[in-house]
Amino acid sequence: MIPAAFEYYRPTSMEGVLALLQEHGDEARVLAGGHSLIPMMKLRMADVPHLIDLQGIAGLSGITIDGGTIRIGTMTTQHDIIGDAALTAAAPIMAEAALQIADPQVRYMGTVGGNVANGDPGNDMPGLMQCLDAHFHLIGPEGERTVAARDFYDSAYMTAREDDEVLTAITFAVPVGGHAYEKQKRKIGDYATAAAAVQISKEGGKVAAASIAMTNLSDTPVWSEAAGAALVGTDCGADAIKAAVAAMLADIDPTEDNRGPVAFKRHVAGIVLGRAIARAWSRA
């Protein structure tokens, strides 16, 4: 649990960050809250000769809601998410999910940007962002670009972000309808055995739109388009939920670990999603 030696940088401008990234290439990583990267370094599973702390850069945290769009700065902590009344009013699923991440100490440090950018399939925010159809704002030597959360994740720890790019913010439209973030975990601080993010809108007693994403059931978050589609036009009754669960199960690919065998995970994924849909529908 002793990391290898590394150089520590704390630049005060994004230009400074980008210059360091260009200079050191894949030997450099940016540090946000550090709750994924630092343990990996301590376990010597991540070798980061050049560590660039983003804490010194102004303007990377904060939550704004403007014209139906929510913007969350990359250095915004999970604690900030939970405490932001306007965000909770506009997108209550954010606080509901953040409250299920680790413990208060971790949430004081852990950031939304770090959570989504690290590409750890166990992290909760990537699936949530896919559910909300968020967009990730990246800045690099070529300038700025955005990537849809649903296109961002290639495999575990492999994302669309280039080594010399930094994720600066997340934006998504103010969600409509009911929401639920349902997570089963073994204990506080654990990754999900299975988690489901669900957002459902209702028109005339029927499902108008539904978005469903699952966490830690594949090597990337899984946005199950088919599961959402299975609900649209239905009354969200038992049969519809069953169809959505079946569709979701076709999209996930969990592996056995200490949380349990595949059959258990698939069963729990179905239960968790069913409960999330029911709760979201009750709020729609």
């Binding site: 413990d103 073994r186 204990k187 506080i188 601080g189 654990d190 990754y191 200490n258």
Partner: peptide, 24 residues
Amino acid sequence: IAYDDIGNVKTGTLMDFFLPTAWE
């Protein structure tokens, strides 16, 4: 403390080793 068939410790960190907190 769980081992696999070739003697690898599967529960060598507090991620997998259950240490209850006030929550549990």
